[in-house]
């Protein structure tokens, strides 16, 4: 049943999120073209009257600003759509179907987390593609910016030839990065989900406003807990850290692992609190 839940959530999200992803790439292409126009225009601007010069320049600048703002906005829109699906599918009319399906409440939540997580990754990939397209094609007068490509490959070479790095380091670093990304995506999604659930439970009206309030409340409580935990960790772990003084990579690993651990534990707490509320106190009105 979990597979089916993911399938339908994934499909529903695709309908709204794929256009946003494609839109982001289109915007990257658009800003690239505007930049090219800038470069072309700069070549000829000496031959134009000052008036036309300023008009052209301001139009191009405006288009550029618009392009960048829209790109940033698409990231927010993507998040909004992810959360809107949860809100609509659980607490609006569609909730009447969602919560009469013969599935475990935990699976409903897990299905929504996984499909939303996958879509968060997909939008992330599209965002990176958009940025790379702009950097390579939109930042120089020539068709392709060779400096950027050279920079990339140099950084790549440098990374693979860090002195004192063992194979283990090269396995650990990507693993830790991937885990960090996955955990923070899960943590964020689950925090928003919990806030929406709480907002809908507590408020009779203005449920969205209540959800926003609950987001800040839960977030604040979490960060107080996290900073307390971190203080304790640092205090207890100080002798260990000191003994590792000459092995800076190990210290970095330990910090990342602790961060992942905290993020994962918060995710688990958010998940089970949310599940308990949906299971025991669901009240669709």
């Amino acid at each position: 049943m979990l597979g089916k839940l993911i399938k339908y959530d994934f499909k529903a999200l695709k309908k709204t999120l794929l256009p946003v992803c494609l839109g982001a790439v289109a915007l990257a292409v658009f800003t690239t073209i505007v930049m090219k126009l800038f470069f072309v225009f700069n070549d000829y601007n000496d031959n134009l009257p000052i008036m036309a010069n300023t008009v052209f320049e301001s139009i191009l600048t405006l288009l550029l600003v618009f392009g960048f703002l829209a790109l940033v906005a698409s990231a927010f829109i993507a998040w909004f759509l992810l959360l809107q699906r949860y809100y609509k599918n659980c607490f609006k009319d569609e909730g009447y179907l969602t919560f009469t399906l013969p599935v475990k409440t935990g699976n409903i939540l897990l299905g929504k987390l996984i499909s939303a997580g996958i879509w968060a990754l997909i939008t992330g990939v599209f965002a990176i593609i958009s940025i790379i397209v702009f950097l390579i094609f939109g930042t120089s007068q020539s068709f392709i910016n060779m400096d950027i490509i050279r920079g990339f490959s140099e950084a790549w070479n440098l990374f693979w030839n860090i002195p004192d790095f063992t194979t283990l380091d090269y396995i650990l670093i990507p693993t830790i990065l991937i885990l960090t990304v996955l955990c923070s995506i899960a943590q964020n999604i689950l925090l928003f989900y919990l806030a929406i659930t709480l907002g809908n439970q507590i408020a009779k009206r203005h449920k969205i406003l209540a959800s926003v309030g609950m987001y800040f409340a839960v977030n604040t409580v979490s960060s107080i807990l996290v900073s307390t935990a971190m203080t304790v960790f640092t205090f207890l772990g100080f002798p260990i850290l000191e003994s590792l003084d000459n092995q800076p990579m190990r210290i970095i690993y330990i910090y990342f692992l602790i961060a992942i651990l905290i993020s994962a534990s918060l995710s688990v707490v958010y998940f089970f609190v949310n599940k308990a509320i949906l299971k025991k106190r669901l009240n669709l009105e």
């Binding site: 909730g95 009447y96 919560f99 009469t100 025991k280 106190r281 669901l282 009240n283 669709l284």
Partner: peptide, 9 residues
């Protein structure tokens, strides 16, 4: 009806 359906507790 909603209580029987499981939408209200």
């Amino acid at each position: 009806i909603k209580t029987i359906a499981g939408l209200l507790k």
